[in-house]
Simulated assay, not measured.
Amino acid sequence: MGPNKKLDVPVYDLSAVRGIWEVRVKKYRTRQKKEQQRVENSALARRPAGRGTSGLEGPDLPAGRRSLAGEFPHSQGKGTGSVMCEGTVLQDFPRELQWTTYLQEWHVRRTRIRQLPDFLALFTQLTVLEIPRNLIADLPPQIGKLAALRRLNVGYNRLSKVPPELGDCEKLERLELAGNLSLSELPFELSSLKQLVHLDISENRFASIPICALRMSRLQLLDLSNNQLSDLPQDMDRLQELSTLFVHHNSLSYLPVCLANISSLQMVVASGDALTCVPTKLCNDPEIKEQEVKDGSEKEFMEAYISTLKDRDTVPFSTTKVSISCLL
Rank of each mutant, 00 (worst) to 15 (best):
Q98E: 14
N157F: 02
W99H: 11
R150M: 05
D168E: 08
N134V: 10
Y102L: 07
K161E: 14
R65E: 10
C169M: 04
K161P: 01
L61M: 04
G64W: 07
L61Y: 11
K78D: 07
L61Q: 12
I113T: 05
C85F: 00
N134R: 01
H107K: 06
I113P: 10
F123S: 00
I113M: 12
Q142K: 08
T88F: 02
V154H: 07
R114P: 02
L166M: 14
N153D: 15
G79L: 09
I143G: 05
P117H: 00
R95M: 05
R151F: 12
P73A: 08
L90S: 12
L126Q: 00
S67I: 08
P94E: 11
Q104S: 08
R95T: 05
Q115S: 15
G77K: 02
N157V: 13
P73C: 08
K161T: 15
S75R: 08
R66S: 13
N157Q: 12
F72N: 04
G58V: 02
G81S: 12
R66G: 09
E165K: 10
N153Y: 01
S67K: 08
T127P: 00
C169Y: 03
G144E: 06
A147C: 00
P141Q: 13
G144W: 04
T101Q: 12
Q76E: 14
P117M: 10
F119A: 08
G155Q: 06
G70D: 11
R158F: 11
S82K: 03
K171E: 00
R66E: 14
T127D: 08
S82P: 00
G81L: 07
G70S: 11
G64A: 13
P164R: 10
Y156D: 12
R109D: 07
R150G: 12
R150V: 00
G81M: 03
I143F: 04
G87C: 10
F119H: 03
V108T: 04
L61S: 13
F72E: 05
S160K: 04
L135G: 01
Q98H: 06
G87H: 11
H107G: 01
P117K: 10
A69S: 11
R110P: 12
P59R: 13
T124R: 15
C85W: 03
G79F: 05
Q142I: 03
Q104K: 06
V128S: 01
T111W: 10
I131P: 02
V162M: 04
L90F: 10
Y102I: 01
E130W: 14
F119G: 01
F123G: 00
K161S: 15
S75T: 06
G77E: 13
Q142Y: 05
K161C: 14
R65G: 01
I113N: 03
V154Q: 05
E170Q: 13
V89P: 01
F72S: 08
L159I: 09
L146Y: 01
G167R: 01
C85S: 05
P140R: 07
T80M: 03
K78H: 09
K145W: 06
D60M: 11
L122E: 05
Q115A: 15
D118N: 13
V154F: 03
C85H: 02
G155L: 07
R65H: 14
V89M: 06
Q91T: 15
G155I: 07
G79V: 11
V89N: 14
L149Q: 06
E170G: 00
L122D: 14
G58N: 12
D138Q: 09
N157K: 06
